[in-house]
Simulated assay, not measured.
Amino acid sequence: MDNQTPSDLLVEIKTHTQLSEVALAALLGISQPTVNRILKNQPGCSSKSLMAIQRAHADMKSGKLRPAEQPAAA
């Protein structure tokens, strides 16, 4: 994993997906304040959050996690 911090991984995911913090939190199953704290490289990333970020990053690298698309017309 090239010694990337949780913040580094999350920034890559957010940039790739173009998701808001709220949508990113929903994707990862963690709270938006936690996403914000991690993006700001503040301490307090739990093992649950780290595992969710690592899973999403691996999905991104393998092509399973794609950039957000425009919502479909109703």
Score class of each variant (00 low, 15 high):
Met1Cys: 06
Asn3Lys: 13
Gln4Thr: 10
Gln4Cys: 07
Thr5Asn: 05
Ser7Val: 00
Ser7Glu: 14
Asp8Asn: 02
Leu9Trp: 02
Leu10Pro: 00
Val11His: 13
Glu12Pro: 00
Glu12Ser: 13
His16Gly: 04
His16Ile: 01
His16Asp: 07
Gln18Asn: 14
Gln18Met: 06
Leu19Ala: 07
Glu21Gly: 09
Glu21Asn: 15
Ala23Arg: 14
Ala25Ser: 10
Ala26Phe: 03
Leu27Lys: 15
Leu27Gln: 11
Gly29Pro: 02
Gly29Leu: 07
Gly29Lys: 02
Ile30Ala: 04
Ser31Gly: 13
Gln32Thr: 04
Gln32Asn: 08
Gln32Phe: 01
Gln32Ala: 07
Gln32His: 02
Val35Glu: 00
Val35His: 00
Leu39Tyr: 06
Lys40Glu: 12
Asn41Met: 03
Gln42Val: 05
Pro43Glu: 12
Pro43Lys: 13
Gly44Arg: 10
Cys45Ile: 05
Cys45Arg: 03
Ser46Gly: 14
Ser46Cys: 08
Ser47Lys: 14
Ser47Leu: 15
Lys48Ser: 13
Lys48Phe: 10
Ser49Tyr: 00
Ser49Val: 08
Leu50Ser: 10
Leu50Pro: 03
Leu50Cys: 09
Met51Ser: 14
Met51Asp: 11
Ala52Gln: 03
Arg55Lys: 14
Arg55Phe: 10
Arg55Ser: 14
Arg55Ala: 13
Ala56Ser: 14
Ala56Trp: 01
Ala58Gly: 07
Asp59Trp: 04
Ser62Ala: 13
Lys64Ser: 09
Arg66Trp: 04
Arg66Gln: 15
Arg66Leu: 14
Pro67Cys: 05
Glu69Met: 11
Gln70Trp: 08
Pro71Tyr: 09
Ala72Leu: 14
Ala73Phe: 10
Ala73Pro: 09
Ala74Met: 07
